[in-house]
Nucleic acid binder design. Structure first.
Lengths: 351, 351
DNA sequence: ACAAGTTCTGTAATCGATTACATCAATGGT
DNA sequence: ACCATTGATGTAATCGATTACAGAACTTGT
């Protein structure tokens, strides 16, 4: 069977409800009811209509339906472009599965640049979209016009809930970062190199707090930590590695902002002849699959990526269903999940 | 400034064109013209209307516009879920950038399972979407109903163009796989282990051909190749590694279907005490960033991932603009791009 | 000052589906 | 046998924008 031929048989224009009505010899109202409230029709009428629907291959035009109903089944998800795909892919998977269960479809809006973002702002304001999820701390904002101005129900996932005042599903970044430090202190490390992320980033700020308080709790002074700003990407791992190598008195352990950064860091210091974990311990963050396949296997903090996406999407669906925020989430406006330490080969006790 | 307060000031309902008309003291037609054909209005009328638009924060409802105009600015992109995120992320980036330039918005449809796919089929048939891109060889097809039945303009990227008869943008998989073999033969390898992908997959089939012909051209018999079916994921690399280890007489080189598989394969055989490239050479496929950060750095075939997405999206946009396929692409219906060998540390000449 | 032509703006039809209300038929009660 | 009630279906308004056409206002030429 040649598919190209099959497609040519398709009518040039998609069948409308009136085409079905004509074919079945009923009114458009009856067709509409046959599809949305079959019980209200006499069985024989219903069957006649459904037969015509099947014969014509009719699918209701959802644009018209949406205009009339005033609501949409589309959810816009804002994602950072080109950053940490293995992490976001899994969060998106949780989102996608959950939205699908609730009958929503996902529009992915990559944060990219100004003109690009403007399109997303207009999309949100244009009535096409029912709600908004953001997995990015930065939100489209062009010329003082924010994507939030559209007033759509919105939920932040792993992103700063403060700026926007949005309900949020978050990792307990503070605790998770403290776990990194505690793990290293427990192994006897006394001086740490911290390869962090961009200034102003919510996750970075929260983790900073956790690190500081864990240092204190572990009896170390703030000077025990040398910080270097990275970017959550491979590039930051390389420059961070170079910065580490340039130190005259190198700390024995390194905390990385995410796994990709950690992997690039390890690669960089190894090329310079250092051995991990013999010469230094390295711990990552995120728990992407790959962290278990690199050399040495990477100790890290696993985030419940799928669950973060799932719970965030569920929350949005609840809000779209008309529930009040107070009914579906804690007073604080936040649902907080915990990271989990995966101690592997890249961290080791000091001799 | 408290954003939550700002949002509360928003009118409960988005302003309509008639609200603007009232505010400006003109008819709805004039408002519409002020936005779409400003030259046709007396400058003072136009300014009055635009002032009202700005004052109310009016954005045209694109659902109504779409219903009237009969066309949409949404493109549905079908992507495999949970497979090789680093690869697809970059292809998607090329697609997204290109669609954005042309004023389109991307809906990501992950291939997942039956109910999930049914939603995508209905989305395509519902008039919501202008066109279709697929980066997946499998297309949503539930109960004999295919997403292609909607008759949308569609383009395949890196995916089987045969089944669907779609215009396609492809990597020359046959040539690329031949390059893998040629590289290994040039290094003196005479027996190869081939960790391939799922049976029936277009890329797998084409590469198979390239491998066979390159073996022949290199003077090797087909028996020089031992094939093991993987899955383009980490798991396939592990099971493939175990299969390799179980061989009594192991080939000196291994060809992998993609980089993630190769990385997991390397990890597996190393845990068993084998050294790469001392004991065996391994070559991957795709050229994801990570391939240059693992240990040892991975020889691979780089795909022009961004360009594949870009060219595919451009082609779809041309078709949506009403161009005939013959005007914007070769007679064959295919645009073919070449891979590039990246020879790194995981492959080495036999002694 | 008036006809003819421009220029500008308003009225109303339209896109395709949903649904309140109207209408008509069938049923049951007395 | 007739009225009231229920059930089934049709008619037409509606969602919010665009645009063909109509009509008003304003020029210009004679």
């Amino acid at each position: 069977m040649r598919d190209s031929a099959r497609r040519r048989e398709q009518p040039r224009r998609a069948p409308r409800i009136s085409d079905v009505a004509d074919a079945a010899g009923v009114s458009v109202a009856t067709v509409s009811r046959a599809l949305s409230a079959p019980d209200k029709l006499k069985p024989e009428t219903r069957d006649k209509v459904l037969a015509a629907v099947a014969a014509l291959g009719y699918t209701p035009n959802s644009v018209a339906r949406q205009l009339r109903a005033g609501n949409s089944r589309l959810v816009l998800v804002i994602v950072p472009q080109r950053t940490n795909p293995p992490f976001f892919a899994e969060v998106l998977h949780g989102i996608d599965v959950t939205l699908a269960e609730a009958g929503y479809v996902l529009i992915t809006g990559y944060m990219e640049g100004h003109d690009h973002d403007l399109r997303l702002i207009e999309l949100a304001a244009s009535g096409h979209v029912a709600g908004l999820l953001t997995v990015s701390g930065d939100l489209p904002n062009v010329g003082g016009r924010s994507i939030l101005d559209a007033g759509l129900p919105a939920v932040a996932i792993c992103a700063d809930p403060q700026v926007a005042g949005l309900p949020a599903v978050l990792l307990d970044d503070e605790r998770a970062a403290a776990m990194q430090v505690e793990h290293l202190i427990a192994l006897g490390h006394r001086r740490l190199f911290y390869l962090s992320g961009p200034e102003g980033n919510y996750n970075v700020t929260m983790r900073q707090r956790g690190i500081v308080s864990a240092l204190e709790a572990g009896g170390l002074s703030p000077e025990a930590l040398i910080e270097y700003r990275g970017d959550f990407a491979f590039t930051g791992g390389i420059s961070g590695g170079e910065a580490y190598l340039a130190l005259s008195d190198r700390p024995s352990a390194v905390i990385c902002g995410n796994d990709e950064t950690a992997i690039a860091f390890v690669k960089t210091v190894r090329s310079a002849g250092l051995r991990v974990p013999d010469d230094l311990s390295v711990i990552g963050f995120d728990g992407i699959e790959l962290a278990d396949f690199c050399e040495p296997t990477l100790s890290t903090i696993a985030q419940p990526r799928f669950e973060l996406g799932r719970v965030g999407a569920r929350l949005l669906v609840d809000l779209l269903d008309g529930n009040e925020p107070g009914d579906v989430m804690p007073e604080s406006g936040r649902i907080v999940m915990q990271g989990r330490l995966l101690a592997r080969d890249s961290t080791r006790a000091v001799e």
